[in-house]
């Protein structure tokens, strides 16, 4: 009989101990963020959408259309149309990214020999049409 009472007592207190933890947090502030009102500050390395780095002063990018990024992309989401100018220097005529295919792995950024690519901090990427998923990286 005593054994049984002890058992019941233990079981009941076990439930109360759990409740105590919950009640403790009842008096502390919220841990969640009110998302659309407050926004995240992403770390420096956050990998968002691939973009070409544009020099602010000259408005030029460093892409030499070597196609290293196109070849390294695991999902074939990048496309570059190679053009040559009068000095036989290569430059990208078109540079498109298909966001629907992109895995945000960052292999293209790593492969670029001129460090022309970067990933920005954009993370709200939903669009209304399939067409909008294809982005041109050139300004």
């Amino acid at each position: 009989m005593i054994k049984f009472t002890v058992k019941v007592f233990k079981r009941v207190t076990s439930l109360l101990e759990g409740m105590a933890v919950t009640i403790k947090y009842f008096f502390s502030g919220p841990v969640t963020m009110q998302y659309p009102d407050k926004k995240w500050t992403l770390p420096e390395r956050a990998r968002g959408v691939v973009t070409l780095i544009i020099d602010k002063e000259t408005g030029k990018h460093r892409c030499i259309a070597c196609l290293a990024c196109v070849r390294t992309c695991p999902n074939f989401s990048l496309a570059v149309e190679v053009k040559t100018d009068e000095n036989k220097k290569r430059y990208p005529g078109k540079f498109t990214l298909e966001l629907g295919k992109c895995m945000f792995c960052g292999l293209c950024v790593d492969s670029c020999p001129t460090k022309a690519l970067m990933m920005n901090n954009e993370y709200e990427l939903a669009v209304y049409t399939r067409k909008e998923l294809t982005r041109s990286l050139l300004p």
């Binding site: 841990v31 420096e44 792995c105």
Partner: peptide
């Protein structure tokens, strides 16, 4: 709540929260 802290840390290291690469 604790997982969120880990993911924040891993994001600061790798740049992603789930598929780190």
């Amino acid at each position: 709540r604790e997982r969120e802290m880990i993911l924040d840390m891993l994001e600061s290291v790798s740049g992603q929260r789930l598929t780190f690469a």
